[in-house]
């Protein structure tokens, strides 16, 4: 894993050309003091990446996890699931009014119908954006997020400034995301928690009448399903 050595203040050394004889000695000395320190460390003093690694190793020894399966989970959430599943749901809703009605009435069933379900995504609520109402989602407590359809939450979603400011002043925060809404549009901020996860159905962009579902899905960004942006516009023909 990259970043294993980021707990050491030796970054400049990687640029050294070994012209200085003292370099290796200094380095050696530092290693030894670290070894001594390690014997005295309590768990809170140990750098977080080492603690995570230790937990992984311990659970591997106990046969409770398979390290290679961890990589598969990360890949799944970061690359394969990502927001693509959610984009397919939205594209279907845009293309098929009956599906959209189903999605709004019974989102768990409608989402499962496309084959997406699993951990933490069970209790979904779909919120339709219109010209009159714009919905945006936050988890004010931590980062409750519909992973099976949106992948992992972006860093800003978990940040305290987003979690507090989107509640206090949503219109300004949306403008910072480039989403400047007419004053006549109502903004609703929804608090996702561990029991209810919201999925925003963004408005279908103008000029997409002839597009098929795959092309539509490409216009559905992760941020538009959180509600901080609108869906993308198609490339001008």
């Amino acid at each position: 894993m990259a970043g294993q050595h980021d707990d050491h203040d030796h970054g400049d050394h990687s640029h050294n050309d070994h012209a200085h004889d003292g370099h290796d000695h200094d380095h050696f000395h530092r290693i030894h003091s670290q070894e001594a320190d390690a014997l005295l460390m309590s768990i809170a003093d140990i750098e977080i990446s080492a603690r995570v690694k230790a937990l992984e190793e311990l659970l591997t020894q106990k046969g409770l996890i398979d390290p290679s399966a961890l990589d598969a989970v990360v890949d799944l959430y970061e690359n394969q699931i990502g927001p693509k599943n959610g984009a397919r749901v939205i594209a279907r809703a845009w293309a098929d009014p009956a599906y959209k009605a189903w999605l709004l009435a019974d989102p768990n069933a409608a989402i499962a119908d496309l084959g997406f379900a699993g951990a933490q995504g069970e209790n979904m609520v779909a919120l339709e954006n219109t010209a009159d109402v714009h919905n945006v989602v936050v988890c004010t407590l931590c980062s409750c997020y519909p992973w099976p359809v949106l992948g992992l939450p972006p860093v800003w979603y978990k940040s305290m400034p987003y979690r507090t400011r989107i509640v206090r002043d949503p219109r300004s925060v949306l403008a910072e995301f480039g989403t400047v809404l007419p004053a006549t549009t109502e903004i609703r901020v929804w608090d996702s928690n561990s029991e209810v996860r919201y999925l925003v159905v963004p408005r279908r962009p103008e000029g997409t009448e002839g597009l098929d579902e795959a092309a539509l899905a490409a216009l559905v960004s992760r941020d538009s399903m959180i509600g901080v942006t609108e869906a993308l516009s198609p490339e001008p023909a």
């Binding site: 894993m1 990259a2 970043g3 980021d6 977080i48 990446s49 995570v52 690694k53 937990l55 992984e56 659970l59 409770l64 996890i65 398979d66 399966a69 961890l70 990589d71 989970v73 990360v74 959430y77 970061e78 951990a119 992948g151 992992l152 939450p153 972006p154 860093v155």
Partner: peptide, 17 residues
């Protein structure tokens, strides 16, 4: 979504368990 690999590892451990 992850700022560092250990974050992804910590996440995946909990999901697998």
């Amino acid at each position: 979504a992850f700022a560092a690999p250990w974050e992804a590892q910590a996440f995946a451990l909990v999901v697998k368990l």
